[in-house]
Amino acid sequence: MTTTDAPPAGPPPAGKRRIGDAVFAGLARGSGYLILLILAGVAAFLIIQAWPSLSANTVSFLGSREWEANTRENPAFGVAALAFGTVLAAAIALVIATPVAIGVALFIVYYADSRLASPLGYLVDLLAAIPSVVYGLWGIGFLAPQLVPVYEALTRYLGWIPLFAGPASNSARTMLTAGIVLAVMILPIITAMSRDVFKQVPQGHREAALAMGATRWEMIRLAVLPFGKSGVVGGAMLGLGRALGETMAVAMILSPALVISFALLKSGNQTIAAHIALQYPEATGYGVSALIAAGLVLFAITLAVNMSARYVVARGSKESR
């Protein structure tokens, strides 16, 4: 830094370097690089720690469902069932939460009285502040018992649909219950993002629709939803990211089994995050390394989801300009 040097002869430089600017720019740049460094560090840690078990694995890691990793030789483990369960639980949550979130956001922005709208928005945000262990307790202690008769009825009358194949679990600690709880947990983020983007719909677009005789719903369909699509998708992807990584609530609710099954009402299935949380305390031999390998897969899935969310949002905002 040469800010204290005497100014050179001739025309003054275009911009004077100020010490405060330089410090702030350095801090900001450093914080930016730090994020990259942390991300790279996590990835490196996962790969290095996972490597011993992956190289000793006797079955296909990505294709196998078994988990015999707590040995000192010849471990046999795979993430197929876990990855399947992770994606399935998150997908259920997304399918349930997205329409509800869009509805809540539309209600808050376009239907509710302003005296009702802001407390309601605040309450939805509050849902995000509830710790996941509380959601887990709620799921296992309240929701699951309520759902037992519902599931029995579903298997009896809709059992011909593979999703609802029986027999229903008599504790209701199943994939669908986990998915419902996850849906409640990701509702706030999807609602918040949808609400923000619905609020930004230009008045000109809304008036254009109304002026040609659109009802309020038609106005929303013509002007609000097309404009807000990218925001809703982005919110849904962020919610999906959260649902994929959610550990505690799922670990408490599911009664685990390493199967690949679309039967949402039978007990079985497991997610990566919950599996790691439950197995880690008892892991021996190659066990820890194998769990870290599963974590690496979760990291990759979550990263891919988040990046596609960014992509969708960026593309959408370019289109609507």
């Binding site: 230009p202 000109g204 677009h205 008036e207 254009a208 629709a209 109304l210 002026a211 040609m212 005789g213 659109a214 009802t215 013509l222 002007a223 097309p226 404009f227 699509k229 289109e319 609507s320």
Partner: peptide, 21 residues
């Protein structure tokens, strides 16, 4: 009002075609 607006159309100061259409 929806019926009224079907009878009485309006054009605004700022051209506002639906951007996604």
């Amino acid at each position: 009002p929806v019926t009224v607006r079907g009878q009485v159309g309006m054009v605004f100061q700022k051209a506002n075609p639906f951007p996604t259409m």
